[in-house]
Amino acid sequence: MDLKPGSRWKSAVCSAEVIVVRATKDAAARLECGGHEMNAAGASPTPGGTLSPDFSGGVQVGKRYVDADSGVEMLCTKAGQGSLSLNGRLLTLKEAKALPSSD
């Protein structure tokens, strides 16, 4: 999968959509949601897949998810029931310090 920055991906088994904020150079990286490989946004969905219970924590819109090993970072643009994973590793929620509005 070519997880280049700005590329957008859609879950095959739920409504989740993400955009790549920080990429990985690992060409073998496999991005999954709900335990199934994500499709490029715009591609037609894979029929018949079901959400894996191991990857069913869900993703929230506007949250960022990271993989510490590869440095990959995703922004969720549409919520879904599946959890994100990279090569089988669950991505973790990136905790951001709340900042006051300054503009």
């Binding site: 920055p5 700005g6 904020v21 819109v61 506007g62 949250k63 960022r64 922004l75 951001a96 709340a98 900042l99 509005s101």
Partner: peptide, 15 residues
């Protein structure tokens, strides 16, 4: 990418 990065790294979505 500069402006979008500024926004998503400093603002919590729909907070």
């Amino acid at each position: 990418r500069h402006l979008a990065s500024y926004v998503i790294s400093t603002v919590e979505f729909m907070h």
